[in-house]
Design a protein around this nucleic acid. Structure first.
Lengths: 107, 107
DNA sequence: ATCGTTTATCGTAAATGAACGATAAAGAAC
DNA sequence: GTTCTTTATCGTTCATTTACGATAAACGAT
């Protein structure tokens, strides 16, 4: 673990973006560590994409709480949201999700 | 593997214990949602089985803190620990882990 | 029986999380 | 322009998590 010669200890080279490091992996797991967020994710998977308001409708929670959960999922990179006029449209980030799956496979 | 004569919507039949329900899945994710616990899991994967004291050694944390993390992992079913005289020997619960993997695959 | 070792648990303090209502920001509709 | 709608953020409260040291419980060794 001493980089005298510039070999390739670079993690980005070893695993060309298909496995998450410990901290990133833990972050994603933490984001998945709440039933409501799993439900949101499942819904987005079924719907492909949908606006925030729809997610608020299907959950028995205040709008601000749902917004908070969406923020956590976004912070972990699991979903993306883009503003479309008055609404914000959310969808899964399949790339991050796939990377997560690969990491789990390797457990 | 597929339901040829499906008549039961009973979830326990549909998925003969190979996929976790939302709450159980969130619980496992939550347990994985801390870098230290990922490290413990990785270590146990490499070592197959090892005693608590060894895990305490490799982590820069107080013994009581490590014990707490082990408890979380055990509570999620990810590891098992059996007392062997003075020591407690921990190992992965591969069955729960495999179920978790299957659930993640299906994401 | 006494002493050291190992691990779990207790008690506690600080940080984070989850929920809510209220409010702000931004765009649509009038 | 004003007003309504949608969503994010603020402020607050309560619960949980994380960390630690201290202690207890269980066992081995002396």
């Amino acid at each position: 673990m001493h980089e005298n010669a510039p070999k390739k200890p670079d993690p980005a080279d070893q695993y060309p973006q298909d496995v998450l490091d410990t901290d990133a992996f833990a972050l994603v797991c933490k984001a998945l560590g709440h039933p409501v967020r799993i439900k949101i994710l499942n819904y987005l998977r079924k719907m492909d994409r949908c606006i925030c308001g729809r997610i608020v409708e299907i959950l028995p929670l205040a709008q601000s709480t749902v917004s908070q959960h969406l923020k956590v999922l976004k912070g972990a990179g699991l979903i993306r949201g883009e503003v479309e006029g008055l609404n914000t449209c959310y969808c899964l980030d399949t790339e991050v999700l796939d990377r997560f799956k690969k990491t789990v496979e390797s457990l």
